[in-house]
């Protein structure tokens, strides 16, 4: 275990808020659930809800709230690990929310969201909230509404928010943009040295856990990861845990708290803290507008006309982009 004493100290420093949300109102799961749906639909209602959430947060949010991105390959055990971490956090009186993101089909728009299967439902516990989110045509591993949904949950005063993303491997780093901390979950078989040196998720993770430590090979997988990462400028700690046998979970949570606190205190790479979610939401909204402009140009024929002009040498590429999006570079 890396930095054990520091991690425990940081965990002790977290102030639980097992009570009403920051505004003092009683938590209403249905209201939050409906707000997340509205944000997924977009439009002016979504904008108003996000503005209201930001106002509540500005009026009095706990500085110890943490948004933890959890990523890793399918089958690594992300959902089970989050469930185990949630139990430990709840036992300490912290309110826990889970946003589980799964892909939508590009063809039908449908999605199969199965993360609740791994969660032991506790319907009588108001200190837990879980929501499954489909990526809905964002073409990303992360839904374009994840940042906004996180802000809504933060405004309800949840202390620990897990955002589980589809295991896109090295494909998508969106989670790093919005989370306070990225936890990468590896299985006992994965993670050879060369893979550990590759760019991608390993680079953006502040913490790595080899799950299923009860299985043979887990120790060696962790060693290979540590050895591969040892050449990196700031190698993230590699921990071992077993969600199935509840081993190493409290230590992992302490390491999450320590790493998140360290990152929150680090102002060298703004935006920090909650502004990450605001910035990520801004990027998502800007990308949505860009996508909608390009679709509009496609359906109006403007795109085809510009393509013909470029091909005929009548319009330079940069000029054609100005025509599509307005001037600027």
């Amino acid at each position: 275990m890396h930095d054990g004493a520091d991690a425990v100290a940081a965990a002790d420093a977290v102030t639980p808020s097992d009570g009403p949300s920051s505004s003092g109102e009683r938590f209403d799961a249905r209201r939050l659930a409906q707000a997340i749906s509205a944000v997924e639909r977009g439009g002016s209602e979504a904008d108003a809800l996000i503005a209201a959430a930001l106002a509540r947060l500005a009026a009095g949010a706990s500085a110890s709230q943490r948004v933890v991105g959890v990523t890793g390959a399918p089958g690594a055990g992300k959902s089970s690990l989050i469930a185990a971490l949630s139990d430990v956090a709840r036992a300490a009186g912290r309110r826990v929310a889970i946003l589980a993101v799964d892909p939508s089909s590009a063809i039908t728009g449908g999605a199969l969201l199965g993360d609740r299967v791994r969660i032991d439902e506790r319907p009588d516990d108001p200190g837990r909230f879980m929501r499954s989110i489909a990526t809905r045509g964002s073409g990303r591993a992360l839904s374009h509404t994840a940042a906004a949904a996180s802000l809504l949950v933060e405004a309800e005063g949840f202390d620990l928010i897990f955002i589980e993303t589809v295991g896109a491997g090295q494909a998508d780093l969106g989670i790093a943009r919005l989370a306070d901390l990225v936890l990468l979950v590896e299985g006992p078989e994965g993670g050879d040295e060369v893979q550990a040196m590759k760019a991608g998720l390993l680079e953006s993770a502040q913490l790595i856990v080899v799950n299923k430590s009860d299985r043979p090979g887990a120790d060696r997988a962790a060693e290979r990861l540590r050895s591969g990462l040892s050449l990196a400028a700031a190698a993230p700690p590699v921990l071992l845990a077993s969600a199935a046998e509840s081993r190493g979970i409290a230590e992992l949570l302490a390491a999450i708290d320590a790493a998140a606190a360290a990152r929150a205190a680090d102002t060298s790479a703004p935006p920090a803290g909650r502004l990450r979610r605001v910035a990520a939401h801004l990027v998502a909204a800007a990308e949505a507008r860009l996508a909608s402009r390009l679709e509009g140009a496609e359906s109006s024929g403007a795109l085809a006309a510009l393509a013909a002009a470029i091909a005929a040498g009548e319009r330079p590429l940069e000029g054609a982009i100005d025509d599509l999006l307005g001037p600027g570079r």
Partner: peptide, 22 residues
Amino acid sequence: EVIYTGIRRSTEAIIAAAIEED
């Protein structure tokens, strides 16, 4: 968009999941 909850769920858990998932 299908949310699958798994087997052997109590009615209370199903109701809570339906509310949270809206």
